[in-house]
Simulated assay, not measured.
Amino acid sequence: MLDGGEPGTVRPGGRTARVREAVLRAAEDALTEQGFTGLDLADIARRAGVGKTTVYRRWGTVTGLVTDLLEDMAEQSAPRTETGSLLGDLTANARLVQRTLTDPRQGPLFKALIAAATGDAKTAAALHRFYDIRVREWAPCVRQAVDRGEAPEGTDAHEVVRAVSAPLYYHLLISGGRLDEATADRAAEVAVTAARAGVYVRGGGKLRRV
């Protein structure tokens, strides 16, 4: 998440927090509607109902604003689900990613952010941090599965989590294929089967292939 939080959530914290919330939600709207290349700080200030000076002083550039947006999305992302089995946990992860990517607001937003990251190093770094946070959030599910004997010792938990969402992003960005719950469930099943077979066991600095 690989996955975003519920859009429009307002958290307490005084005027500064309310201004940040309004500006970030306005940035989401603009990204969803017109993509990264159409972003303009003055337009975002207008959408948020705050002064342009406030926006320019706090964020400085469009890249600075997008970086803050990604950090906010990581903070608001839903926590992992623990079902007691590796398949159950990874299916929950896959379905969360699937719901996010097919959401009328979140799907276009992630497309815009990924597109922006391909042409801007700072945005790319922020996007990498976002996904690193989400992978680290779900990695304990794999480590717990190893402790239960569901996957071999030495399994790279981060690689397993990445393997779940990778085919879902492929459908979103490349193939244009159907991205439904069945697709999500299949991605989880494939990742679990590979993990149990030792595909993601690290040995000698490389993932073991079987």
Rank of each mutant, 00 (worst) to 15 (best):
L65S: 02
P79F: 02
G5W: 01
T37V: 13
A92M: 13
T83Y: 11
G107P: 04
V23S: 12
L65C: 08
I44F: 07
T61R: 06
T118F: 12
G8T: 04
G84D: 08
K52C: 07
P79D: 04
P108I: 00
G203C: 01
D180V: 03
D3M: 13
G204I: 09
R129G: 09
F130I: 01
R25I: 05
M1K: 02
N93V: 08
R129A: 14
R209P: 03
L87M: 14
R134C: 03
P104D: 12
T32G: 15
R15H: 13
D3L: 11
A121I: 05
V210S: 09
D120M: 08
R208V: 14
V160S: 09
C141D: 12
A17E: 14
L86K: 11
T100I: 05
R15Q: 15
K52P: 09
R162H: 05
Q76I: 00
D103Q: 03
R129F: 02
G4K: 04
G60M: 05
E75L: 10
A184P: 13
I114N: 03
T53W: 10
L70Q: 10
A191S: 13
E21A: 15
R57H: 11
F130A: 09
E71R: 11
R58C: 04
V10G: 11
D43L: 12
L127V: 00
P167E: 04
G64P: 01
D147T: 14
D89G: 03
A157P: 06
A197F: 02
D156G: 11
T63S: 15
E21W: 07
R129Q: 10
G176R: 10
V161Q: 08
G4T: 09
V66F: 00
A125F: 02
S77L: 08
A30R: 14
A166Q: 14
A188E: 05
I133K: 14
A139W: 09
L179M: 11
E189D: 07
Q76V: 01
G51W: 00
Y169E: 13
K122Q: 14
E28Q: 12
T193W: 00
D68H: 04
G154L: 05
T123G: 05
A157W: 01
G64R: 00
P140L: 12
S175W: 03
I44D: 11
G38M: 10
R58S: 13
G38E: 14
L90K: 03
K111Q: 11
D120Y: 01
A145C: 10
R20F: 00
P140N: 09
L173M: 08
V55G: 04
R186K: 11
Y170I: 04
R11W: 11
E71P: 03
R186W: 02
R47Y: 09
